[in-house]
């Protein structure tokens, strides 16, 4: 049992160090001494040895260079950390202190599946709350390739073009109810008629005039003609 527990702690330490290497590298620092100083970990040296043995990184001329496995592991942990930060601060509106604390815990335990879900839920954010880049995951690549050119805000639909509604962001319940009573629900096809002085949309044989505010809630997929 002790061995298992010890192993977990070791894993966490490795994660922390990989994270540190990554963030230092972002600041342009690859110096090993600097790493040891910032690490402030008494056992750091022994852990570093384990890490080198595990083929995570190499030291050349006192410079730390991540190897392929280490790079991947580091990217994942940074991604988990920064996504968690965003989730906690934006969705749950927690204070920065709590966010940091929790993110440090969660970064070790989030499974790849949950990480993807969080990323998708947040709309594949490119940066963390401190403005640093969040490493892209597979889901982001998919989003870029399949979704991005397809799902657009209704506002961006060209004049005379048709779009199938993909989703409507529920800013107010009443608005959503009213739109759905007029047949505006995901799956319905809209045609953009004009944008000024008001938006005019065609749905079936119904012509509707709407505010920009309402239109901004609607996202569509272009229908090919």
């Amino acid at each position: 049992m002790r061995w298992g527990g010890g192993r977990e702690i070791e894993e966490e330490r490795i994660d922390e160090i990989l994270e540190l290497i990554w963030t230092l590298r972002e600041r342009g620092i690859t110096d090993l001494d600097q790493l040891l100083e910032e690490g402030k970990d008494l056992e750091a040296k022994s852990i570093l040895r384990v890490m080198i043995r595990d083929d995570l990184f190499d030291v050349e001329d006192n410079r730390v260079i991540l190897k392929e496995r280490g790079e991947e592991k580091a990217r994942e942990i940074i991604r988990r950390h920064r996504l968690t930060e965003r989730l906690l601060s934006e969705i749950f509106e927690l204070s920065e202190e709590v966010v940091e604390q929790e993110a440090c815990k969660l970064e070790h335990i989030l499974s790849p599946g949950v990480t993807e879900s969080v990323c998708t839920f947040l709309g594949h954010p490119p940066t963390c709350i401190h403005g640093k880049p969040i490493p892209r995951g597979e889901c982001c690549a998919k989003f870029k390739k399949e979704m991005k050119p397809l799902v657009i805000p209704l506002e961006e639909l060209g004049l005379g073009e048709e779009g199938r509604i993909v989703f409507i962001t529920p800013r107010s319940h009443q608005r959503l109810d009213r739109l759905s009573a007029l047949g505006i629900v995901p799956g319905s096809i809209l045609r953009m008629h004009q944008r000024n002085p008001s938006y005019v949309l065609q749905i079936g044989e119904t012509t509707l005039a709407l505010d920009g505010e309402v239109v901004r809630d609607i996202y569509v997929k272009k229908v090919k003609d």
Binding site: P170, H173, L176, D177, S180, A181, G183, V185, P186, G187, S188
Partner: peptide, 17 residues
Amino acid sequence: RDPIGYLINQARLRKVD
């Protein structure tokens, strides 16, 4: 996540379609 009224209307519109 969506309001109930909206979900109900959506189900109805599916039937309508």
